[in-house]
């Protein structure tokens, strides 16, 4: 692959630099007549070495820019959006191995310890994107079904447990924290009800989905889906267990603030997003706009199922 080639080149650069350094040392030690000329020569060589080293660093930087994991991740997210628009590559209960050699394998086989894809991709990305202590803050997109009508849902990961004999589906225990906004302003004694629902579910490495049980009798449960590249954001649908159709949607973002307390405010969230995306206001709005399109597509997609 090209990344290996680049690493090979970088190695070559390193040996070249060593060689130059050795040359300087050899020159410094060799001979002792014509001291004046020699000093000039050495000075010239050192200067030249410095220049070449600088060029090597510059080139390495260019290579690094092209292998920047963040850039690869962003391109992967974009690719995922296009793939969402295409017809599904694989039948139900199966997922693509990725790469240029098309192959579908059962979701059950991802990260189970056996290599099932010809390209081995099913066992290559098996670190859970969720770990105990992680927090995700979800902002509402639409909500036709919850009784609380929360503006935000905070998902707090309590524990992630992987069964040694079935590693592809780690069990996830979370708390869903939300503030109730179920009633209009005139009814303000209901406005500040806070809930924290414990909830059990699992993560699927094959589909990058988070699937939770319904925590309450209303049969509504959270279904999260990462895009497979960006594990700091997922689309969280509230679905009815019986129909599997989304009736509310929240876009969740990983909360990177470690010193975070339970008192988040709206302006705080905005700060958080701007910081994360390194965006100015304009681009921030644009990103939101794209989210919306993406989400509309999701509804349609589910609607056909």
């Amino acid at each position: 692959e090209w990344s290996e080639l680049a690493i090979g080149q970088a190695d070559m650069m390193k040996s070249l630099r060593l060689l130059l350094a050795a040359l300087v040392v050899v020159t410094a030690v060799a001979g002792d007549k014509d001291k004046f000329d020699r000093d000039e020569l050495i000075e010239h060589l050192v200067e030249r070495t410095g220049e070449v080293t600088h060029k090597i660093y510059e080139f390495e930087q260019k290579l690094d820019a092209r292998m920047d994991p963040d850039r690869i991740r962003r391109a992967g997210s974009l690719r995922h959006r296009v793939e969402e628009l295409e017809d599904p590559k694989c039948p139900h209960h199966e997922h693509s191995c990725g790469g240029y050699d098309h192959q579908c394998i059962s979701n059950l086989f991802f990260c189970d310890g056996h290599v099932d894809c010809r390209n081995g991709e099913d066992e290559k990305h098996c670190t859970s994107p969720l770990k105990a202590g992680d927090r995700f803050i979800g902002d509402v997109v639409f909500d036709y079904c919850t009784t609380r009508k929360p503006e935000h849902i905070t998902l707090v990961v309590e524990s992630v447990n992987t069964a040694a004999f079935f590693k592809g589906f780690p069990k996830v225990h979370v708390h869903m924290e939300m503030e109730s906004h179920g009633h209009d302003d005139d009814d303000d004694h209901h406005d500040h009800d806070e809930s924290s629902l414990p909830n059990d579910g699992f993560y699927s490495f094959g589909t990058h989905e988070l699937i939770f049980q319904a925590p309450e009798k209303d049969g509504l449960s959270l279904h999260g889906e990462f895009d497979g590249s960006n594990f700091d954001r997922f689309v969280g649908d509230i679905v009815t267990v019986s129909s599997d159709k989304p009736c509310a949607r929240f876009i969740f973002h990983r909360d990177h603030h470690d010193d975070h307390h339970d008192d988040h405010h709206d302006d705080h969230h905005d700060d958080h997003h701007d910081h994360r995306d390194h965006d100015d206001d304009h681009r921030h709005h644009k990103a939101r706009h794209h989210d919306k399109h993406h989400d509309d597509h999701h509804v349609e997609h589910h609607g056909h199922n």
């Binding site: 209960h93 199966e94 394998i105 059962s106 004999f165 079935f166």
Partner: peptide, 21 residues
């Protein structure tokens, strides 16, 4: 339990999990 190819995958997943234990 499903059917066809999917059934084979389901069975395989169960047996792999058995022998892993």
């Amino acid at each position: 339990y499903s059917h066809g190819h999917e059934r084979e995958d389901f069975a395989k997943a169960v047996w792999r999990a058995i022998f892993a234990q």
